[in-house]
Amino acid sequence: MSQFPTEMRVPATLASLQTLLEFVTSCAERRGVGQARIREIELVMEELLVNIFNYAYPERPGDVEVACRLDNTGGLVVEIADEGIPFNTLNQKDPDREAGIDERTVGGLGIFFVKRLIRDIRYRREGGRDILTLTVDPAPAPP
């Protein structure tokens, strides 16, 4: 598997979203992940990346790095790293999904999707970087 590991470093701005999604999609395709699951992975990546674009660098521009590698069972692992302020996005509270239109907010919904679609995701702060590690199950999330 000489195609892995592979990584990409780009400015942490919305303009980088498409490039990064294409990068991760291509990693997943090379691991034989099906189209339905790739759509889910894309959603997960968008939610996590947009959070970083919006909040990681409040006072200066910075980069985000996405890496794809294989774990010892051949499963796809995606790592997202930034050098911004320390923030564990996984600690966000789940949104109230029962509230009516007036009371409803969308805060936390993106991360709720992430947790629903990726079983194994971890956060760590290391060497001045926030690192999210996602172990990507090749099958779509159960309903």
Binding site: R39, E42, L43, E47, V50, I101, D102, L109, G110, F113
Partner: peptide
């Protein structure tokens, strides 16, 4: 529509609140 993320839902909700 092939794809929608929470950003799209936020837009829908914002418009729905104003419509209501």
């Amino acid at each position: 529509l092939e794809y929608i993320s929470s950003a799209g839902l936020r837009s829908i909700l914002s418009a729905a609140k104003q419509l209501k």
